[in-house]
Computed example of a mutant assay.
Amino acid sequence: MVDAGVLRAHLVGVGLAGVVATAREVSLRSYRLFAARDPRVLIGTDPQGEWGQRDVLRLMAARCGVSADPRDTSGQDVIDPGRTLAALDAFAGRLAAVAERRAPVLIGTGHPHRLLGFYVALAEALSAAGCAVLTPAQGRSVDITTRFGLRTHNLDYVRGVALVRESGAGHAGGEPGAHTHSPLPVRVALDAASESGGPLPELVIGDHGWLCGAGQLGFEAVGPADTDDPAPFVGQAEGFVSVVVPLDDAVRSEYYRPLTRYVLNRACLSR
Rank of each mutant, 00 (worst) to 15 (best):
V12K: 02
H10T: 06
P258S: 00
V186W: 08
D143T: 13
R261F: 11
V66Y: 08
D89K: 03
A90E: 15
G65V: 01
A129Y: 05
D229W: 08
R165V: 11
P136E: 00
Y119I: 03
P224C: 02
L200F: 02
V158R: 10
A99E: 09
R140K: 13
P104T: 02
L217Y: 03
G223W: 09
T73D: 14
V78H: 15
R261G: 14
A231Q: 04
R271V: 06
S253P: 09
D55S: 06
F219Q: 09
V19L: 12
A92Y: 03
L106W: 10
Q48L: 14
E124P: 01
F34D: 00
G213F: 08
G206C: 01
V188P: 05
V56P: 10
P201R: 14
V105R: 05
P185Y: 11
A21H: 10
T146I: 09
L88A: 07
L155E: 06
V244K: 00
H113A: 15
F118N: 04
S253A: 15
F240A: 04
S74I: 13
D249F: 05
V243Q: 01
Q236W: 02
G108W: 08
R58W: 05
S141P: 15
V241D: 04
L57H: 01
R24Q: 14
A172F: 14
V26M: 10
A35Y: 05
C268F: 14
P224S: 01
V133L: 02
P246M: 08
D89V: 12
G213Q: 08
A96N: 13
F233L: 04
G173I: 02
H179I: 12
V186G: 07
A162P: 12
S253R: 12
R151E: 15
D3G: 11
V186R: 09
D229P: 02
L122Q: 11
R114E: 15
T146M: 09
S67V: 03
I144N: 06
R54P: 05
Y119F: 14
R102E: 13
G209P: 07
N154V: 15
P136M: 02
R151G: 04
S194P: 00
V263W: 05
P47E: 01
G149H: 03
G93L: 13
N154H: 15
L155D: 07
F91G: 00
V243W: 04
V158P: 00
F148T: 09
G117C: 06
Y119H: 08
